[in-house]
Simulated assay, not measured.
Amino acid sequence: MALKKTTVMVDENDLALVKEAAAREGRPESEYFREAFHLVALRTRRWDEDWDIPELDFGRPVTAEEIDRAVGDGVAGAE
């Protein structure tokens, strides 16, 4: 991975938190900034084609409670 040096202005409080985390976890501060840039790059990515996401039809609306229960069951089953 080729790296390019850049300068950014950051909030003092955010920088202090990054410095604390880096010291606590023994990681270079630069890793946090590279990770943040990568997350922003992924979040802002756009695709030209439509995604082929299947549509599920349960024959009726699904309630928020049913979704919460299904997610909870899935998380509990993964443990």
Rank of each mutant, 00 (worst) to 15 (best):
K5C: 03
I53F: 14
I67F: 10
M9F: 07
L15C: 03
K19G: 03
R60T: 06
T7K: 10
E66T: 01
E55D: 14
D57F: 01
A78E: 11
E49Y: 08
I53D: 14
W47S: 14
L3E: 07
N13C: 07
R69S: 11
A22W: 00
W47P: 04
V10E: 04
F58K: 00
N13M: 12
T6F: 05
R43N: 10
R34G: 01
D57Q: 02
L17C: 07
Y32E: 00
W51G: 10
V71K: 00
E66S: 01
D48L: 12
M9E: 10
K5L: 08
E20L: 05
L42I: 06
E55A: 15
T7D: 07
M1I: 11
E20C: 02
D68S: 12
I67D: 03
V75Y: 11
K19M: 09
L3V: 03
A41C: 03
D57W: 01
A41M: 03
L15G: 01
D14N: 10
A36L: 01
P28S: 11
F33Q: 01
K19H: 10
E49A: 14
A22I: 00
L3D: 04
A64Y: 14
D48W: 05
A22Q: 02
K5A: 09
F33M: 08
D50M: 13
A23C: 05
D48N: 14
F58Y: 13
K5N: 08
E79H: 09
P28Y: 08
D48I: 08
V18R: 08
D57I: 00
W47F: 15
E55Q: 15
K4W: 07
P54Y: 00
K5G: 04
I53E: 15
A21V: 12
A70T: 04
V18Y: 11
R43K: 15
W47L: 14
E29G: 02
G59W: 03
D57T: 00
M9N: 13
G26Y: 09
E29M: 10
E49G: 09
E29K: 05
D68Y: 05
D50I: 09
F58S: 02
V75Q: 09
E29F: 02
T44D: 09
L42K: 11
E31N: 05
E12F: 08
F37S: 09
D52E: 12
D14F: 15
A22V: 01
D14P: 00
F37C: 10
M9G: 08
R69P: 00
H38W: 10
A21P: 02
A21Q: 06
E31W: 11
M9T: 15
D73A: 06
G59N: 02
D11I: 07
L56Y: 12
R45E: 07
L17I: 08
V40I: 13
T7V: 10
E66Y: 01
R27V: 06
D11V: 06
K5I: 11
I67H: 08
A41F: 02
P61Q: 09
F33E: 00
R46K: 15
F58C: 02
A41T: 07
A21L: 11
A64R: 15
E55F: 15
V75F: 11
F58G: 01
M9A: 13
G26K: 06
A64M: 15
K5W: 05
R60N: 06
A23T: 12
D14I: 14
R69F: 05
T6K: 14
H38I: 04
R43L: 06
K4G: 08
G26L: 05
E55G: 12
F33P: 00
P54A: 03
L39W: 14
M1V: 13
A21N: 07
